[in-house]
Design a protein around this nucleic acid. Structure first.
Length: 504
RNA sequence: GGGCGCGUAGCUCAACGGCAGAGCAGUGGCCUUUUAAGCCAUUGGUUGGAGGUUCGAAUCCUCCCGCGCUCACCA
């Protein structure tokens, strides 16, 4: 394929400009640049006292150009804001003005020096004395100004196609400042969580991503292989079993923030790799963890948003109140109209659900049915932050049973904005009970080979050395970020979300 | 995996069986205080791909590719 075919007309023109610059002895990609102020610093410094000269050297990407004969106005954008360049033939010389006009394009990175001043229209700008190219752009940025037909609404037509936005996130970020803001908030969320846990004496650790035995959650793993060891390995689906090994080792409070990988369906709440926070706290139970969860998320909201109130998809949410704690069976009675105490087995519960016209997966266990009820009838209604607690044992193999009822475990999930954000329990620390649970799971899994989970013998050995009673917690950082940035889709808070491969 | 929808110029979108268009971007020109600059001129398309129906297909049909929504799946 020739260059003629693989480059667009605009790109060919820009390549010609690039060649022309080199021809004139100008290096379009110099190795070093100078900068004495950011855009915002230059403007603010000047505004403090406009009688005092401010002579900055600025850098940035050209975002607009308005040529008016012997003067040129252009806006450049750096990582902090934008600033207008004022380039006048009288100041830079006719030759340089022509150079800018003929060879500089929107998208190019430039360096410019001069003196700050205020234009007749009132905008603080740089009166340019010298400028130079510091990086030439070949491909035009996917943005353009747009004009409403009836002249009412002013709108810039920037990249909107979700497919291109995700596949070419660099272009999305370059033209959509609100997208950059999402990832600043995301970073602030993680920072605030870390800060909170560090302050509460939790030790941050890193545990293996490549695991010989996967566990700690219900999901199919990604499989890989180590050549020299001649052994299959799995990308972790959770950190749980490794972090709890550390409790055995005498670390009382431990947490990890990192990536989990689950080989499952992709939708607006699921990406194959996602960021998880898990912490484990010795000598705490799940009620104590609920208290800490409330505190942690209130702290995070204050740090990130400056307060405890946020709006998610049109719903006002306040994290600042005491979160309601609703027993799971009560929530199901209230929101789904089914009294679990009257349906002690799967058959009976399935019938009750069918009577209510709820979806009933065939062959599901009672625990699975309850989980489905929560997901379809309860979860969407939990817009304000709240906890559901006391879950069925059969869907919680790592949680400790309640003292009064062996079929129920001390587990809670936190909900906000109509979806689950965290999952926690009083961790099971009895190795014999844990072995029984694994065997139980193994049996119920045999019906479906794909989901068969291996037994983690080493984890059981660790438990036999003695594990302190503890409360554990897991939370999806991506989903929390969705709430804090009011985004309906997880792809909006992941820089490079997974998409199907496309032949180009 | 199922259902529904979408895919047209660099970007945002029209045209919906009858000559493939607009705004912005680009290119050439005028313009020394613009900022949606303005004015004049102008380039740019295998309408996601392949096949079919038709005198004629961006438009209708089939298949494929990709994306979105949704359902299912997801201890």
């Amino acid at each position: 394929m020739s260059d003629e075919q693989q480059f667009s007309e605009i790109e060919r023109i820009r390549l010609a400009k690039l060649a022309a610059l080199k021809e004139r002895g100008i290096e379009p990609f110099p190795p070093r640049v100078e900068r004495t102020y950011t855009s915002v610093e230059a403007i603010q410094t000047f505004e403090k006292d406009e009688t005092k000269p401010v002579k900055p050297t600025l850098v940035g990407r050209v975002r607009s150009i308005r040529t008016m004969g012997k003067i040129i106005f252009a806006h450049i954008e750096d990582g902090f804001g934008t600033v207008q360049l004022f380039i006048r033939s009288n100041d830079v010389g006719a030759e340089n003005l022509d150079l800018f006009r003929d060879y500089f394009d929107i998208g190019d990175f430039v360096q410019a020096s001069g003196e700050m001043f205020r234009t007749k229209a009132g905008e603080v700008s740089l009166n340019v004395k010298e400028f130079r190219m510091i990086a030439k752009a070949i491909t035009p940025l996917p943005a353009a100004k747009d004009e409403e037909v009836d002249g009412e609404i002013v709108r810039h037509a920037t990249l909107a196609d979700p497919e291109v936005r995700y596949r070419q996130r660099y272009a999305d970020l370059a033209v959509n400042p609100q997208v950059r803001e999402i990832f600043r908030i995301r970073a602030a969320v993680v920072r605030a969580l870390r800060e909170f846990l560090d302050k509460n004496d939790f030790l941050e650790v890193e545990t293996p991503v490549l695991q010989p035995v996967y566990g700690g959650a219900a999901a199919r793993p990604f499989t890989t292989h180590h050549n020299q060891l001649k052994q299959d390995l799995y990308l972790r689906i959770s950190f749980e079993l490794y972090l709890k090994r550390l409790l055995v080792g005498g670390i009382e409070r431990v947490y990890e923030i990192g990536r989990d990988f689950r080989n499952e369906g992709v939708d607006r709440k699921h990406n194959p790799e996602f960021t998880m926070l898990e912490f484990y706290m010795a000598y705490a139970d799940y009620q104590r963890v609920m208290d800490l969860t409330e505190e942690m998320l209130q702290h995070t909201a204050k740090q990130v948003l400056g307060g405890t109130k946020l709006t998610y998809q049109g719903n006002a949410i306040d994290l600042g109140v005491d979160w309601p704690r609703i027993e799971l069976s009560e929530a199901i009675l209230e929101f789904a109209g089914i009294d679990l105490s009257k349906h002690a087995d799967a058959t009976s519960l399935a019938k009750a659900m069918a009577d209510k016209k709820y979806n009933v997966p065939p062959g599901a266990s009672r625990g699975k049915l309850i989980d489905d009820l929560v997901g379809s009838q309860v979860e969407p209604k939990l817009v304000q932050p709240s906890f559901l607690f006391n879950y069925p044992r059969e869907i919680s193999p790592l949680a400790k049973s309640t003292p009064g009822d062996p079929t129920i475990v001390e587990r809670f999930e936190g909900y906000m904005g109509g979806f689950e954000i965290c999952n926690a329990f009083s961790e099971l620390n009895d190795p014999l009970d844990q072995l029984a649970r694994f065997e139980e799971m193994g049996r119920s899994m045999k019906a479906d080979d794909e989901d068969l989970h291996p037994m983690d013998e080493d984890y059981l050995r660790a438990m036999r050395y003695g594990m302190p009673p503890n409360g554990g917690f897991g939370m999806g950082i991506d989903r929390l970020t969705m709430l804090f940035t009011d985004q309906p889709n997880i792809r909006e808070v992941i820089l490079f979300p997974h998409l199907r491969k496309r032949d180009e």
